[in-house]
Design a protein around this nucleic acid. Structure first.
Lengths: 231, 231
DNA sequence: GACTCTATGTATAAGCA
DNA sequence: TTGCTTATACATAGAGT
């Protein structure tokens, strides 16, 4: 059953296309009906299916005519003013995909740096091979984490008498969960726009694909300057 | 989080309606775009939202004009021929709901009779108070079950040498799972159309509600005559 | 092919920032 | 309000009849 994510392109297979057409046509009309009822808007839809010279229309032929008249009344110039054309629709979609990509790359980079941090702390990985870029970002994320830990400490010092074994004392391991939490939370300004060679991923996202993990390389922005490490 | 099932009626709350309108408008246009791409159909949509004199159109003003011309070319008489009007759309929806209701009532009745059967077999319930209608239906379901059990027995007798402790012998308990399976499976002709007083439930279904369990009473059709019990 | 079924993808109502 | 997130309702692809 609906296992594949449908690729947004013309369905070559005839019978498959017809089946899809039928389902989606009724789905579309249902949606039109719903928005009209829920929001009380005036709307119409006309759909010419390939296997019938008669179009499917909604809400009714006369209703369509009414909406059409209203549309025709408007001067041509006005028509194209604030309207969504197929092109602007696509543009909007691309922008959305790019924004999403940016966010995801950001998150990936943060996770990567946190991973590097814990690997180093545990002695599982040396930083000898790290680039200056990585070290910079690493410093930033450590700074963030330290800040968060300090914040927690102050908070816990403020509430005396809790039964926790944590009150007032920074126990790194005890804060791990909170740090992890933070890691996946706050703002992180690593990546600010799309970099060459990532376009395929953007396209992927635009069409709704699953986001692939982004390597450390190529992810850094030149205009990013993290605060110096200062505990 | 979409917790409530939206009731299909005008949203009185202003800000809520605007939010919904915005989301659904873009959803609708996306759907239009998709069906057009996937199925290569010629279509257009015009939506007048309440807060903007400019309509939202798809695929573009000129595209809309093209489709409109095609629509206008058709004689008025032809227009209303095979087209979906708001009324026929609703009718279709009601019919669908009624069909679904019928099926669900059927299933409920079957489950009920099976339940009664097992209750009686276990001595948890006497049949003294059962109506002739219930007894009739009960006989039918028992017949069905016996048939299924016999079928299974034949099948198992056919495949000698399986390691199962079941081969060739009808062990009622051992067949329970299969019977249960059957219970929820085959065709069951109890209810053939909608009976007075069930209309509210139909309405419920038409709007997508969860189906309430149907009582035994009022569910039987006069034209139903089950095969006599004959093991 | 035209329908039904159901697992899965998508839309979106509420919440929250 | 606008936008983003998340849980839930809804649409529908693919498979079976």
């Amino acid at each position: 059953m609906a296992r594949k994510k449908v690729e947004l392109k013309y369905i070559a297979n005839d019978s498959k296309r017809r089946a899809t057409q039928k389902k989606r046509k009724s789905g579309l009309i249902k949606k039109a009906d719903e928005i009209s009822t829920l929001c009380g808007v005036d709307a119409c839809a006309i759909i010419y299916t390939s296997d019938d010279p008669q179009p499917e229309v909604w809400p009714s032929p006369s209703g369509v005519n009414r909406v059409i008249s209203r549309f025709k009344e408007m001067p041509e110039l006005e028509q194209s003013k604030k309207m969504m054309s197929q092109e602007s629709f696509l543009r909007q979609r691309i922008q959305k995909g790019q924004d999403q990509l940016k966010k995801l790359k950001n998150e990936n980079r943060k996770k990567e740096m946190n991973n590097l941090m814990f690997q180093s702390l545990g002695g599982y990985q040396s930083l000898d091979n790290a680039t200056i870029i990585d070290l910079n970002d690493l410093a930033w994320i450590i700074d963030q984490n330290i800040n968060e830990v300090n914040k927690q400490i102050s908070k816990l010092q403020g509430q005396e008498g809790t039964s926790s074994n944590n009150n007032g004392v920074a126990t790194i391991n005890g804060e791990q969960a909170q740090v992890d939490n933070i890691i996946n939370g706050g703002v992180f300004p690593f990546v600010d726009n799309i970099i060459n060679g990532e376009q395929a991923q953007v396209d992927n996202i635009i069409n709704g694909g699953v986001f692939p993990f982004v390597d450390a390389a190529n992810n850094f922005q030149n205009d990013y300057c993290p605060t110096p490490f200062n505990p």
